[in-house]
Simulated scan of single mutants.
Amino acid sequence: MGKFISIVIVILSFSVFKAQQKDITSLRYEALEKRIQEENDKLLVINFWSTTCAPCVKELPHFIEINNKYAANPKFKMILVSLDRLVDKERVIKFMNTKNLTAEVILLDDIKRMNTWIPRFEKDWDGNIPVTLFYNNGEKVFFNDGEMSREELENTIKQYIKS
Score class of each variant (00 low, 15 high):
residue 157 I to P: 05
residue 78 M to R: 09
residue 117 W to F: 15
residue 44 L to A: 05
residue 53 C to I: 03
residue 64 I to R: 14
residue 144 N to C: 10
residue 9 I to T: 13
residue 132 T to Y: 01
residue 83 L to T: 10
residue 49 W to N: 03
residue 112 K to N: 14
residue 24 I to H: 07
residue 127 G to S: 05
residue 8 V to S: 10
residue 147 E to Q: 15
residue 126 D to H: 10
residue 122 E to A: 15
residue 143 F to Q: 04
residue 95 F to P: 08
residue 84 D to T: 08
residue 100 N to P: 01
residue 99 K to A: 13
residue 31 A to E: 13
residue 28 R to S: 12
residue 69 K to Q: 13
residue 161 I to V: 13
residue 36 I to A: 09
residue 54 A to W: 01
residue 8 V to R: 11
residue 85 R to P: 03
residue 87 V to H: 11
residue 39 E to L: 04
residue 34 K to P: 04
residue 36 I to N: 06
residue 149 S to D: 06
residue 49 W to I: 07
residue 17 F to N: 11
residue 126 D to T: 14
residue 53 C to G: 07
residue 74 P to N: 15
residue 147 E to W: 00
residue 7 I to C: 07
residue 144 N to W: 08
residue 139 E to D: 12
residue 144 N to E: 13
residue 17 F to G: 06
residue 149 S to F: 10
residue 85 R to M: 14
residue 81 V to A: 05
residue 20 Q to G: 08
residue 56 C to N: 00
residue 76 F to I: 04
residue 153 L to G: 02
residue 143 F to Y: 11
residue 47 N to M: 02
residue 119 P to S: 06
residue 96 M to H: 00
residue 2 G to P: 00
residue 146 G to S: 10
residue 92 V to C: 06
residue 155 N to W: 04
residue 124 D to S: 11
residue 109 D to R: 06
residue 65 E to Y: 09
residue 120 R to S: 07
residue 119 P to W: 02
residue 71 A to Q: 13
residue 105 V to R: 00
residue 58 K to C: 01
residue 51 T to D: 03
residue 142 F to M: 12
residue 141 V to F: 09
residue 44 L to N: 02
residue 75 K to W: 01
residue 133 L to Y: 06
residue 82 S to T: 11
residue 151 E to A: 14
residue 87 V to E: 15
residue 154 E to M: 12
residue 89 K to L: 07
residue 55 P to R: 01
residue 113 R to Q: 13
residue 83 L to W: 09
residue 99 K to C: 01
residue 83 L to C: 07
residue 101 L to E: 01
residue 86 L to T: 10
residue 151 E to M: 10
residue 50 S to Q: 03
residue 48 F to R: 05
residue 44 L to D: 06
residue 24 I to P: 02
residue 51 T to L: 06
residue 150 R to M: 04
residue 33 E to M: 07
residue 89 K to I: 12
residue 4 F to K: 14
residue 130 P to C: 09
residue 162 K to P: 03
residue 124 D to Y: 08
residue 31 A to Y: 02
residue 51 T to Q: 10
residue 67 N to A: 08
residue 3 K to V: 14
residue 45 V to Q: 01
residue 74 P to W: 05
residue 73 N to D: 15
residue 117 W to Y: 14
residue 77 K to H: 07
residue 33 E to Y: 13
residue 24 I to S: 02
residue 159 Q to P: 01
residue 127 G to T: 07
residue 65 E to R: 12
residue 132 T to W: 01
residue 47 N to W: 03
residue 20 Q to W: 10
residue 134 F to Q: 03
residue 34 K to G: 02
residue 106 I to Y: 00
residue 154 E to T: 12
residue 121 F to K: 05
residue 90 E to L: 02
residue 23 D to V: 08
residue 62 H to W: 06
residue 10 V to T: 12
residue 60 L to E: 06
residue 113 R to M: 10
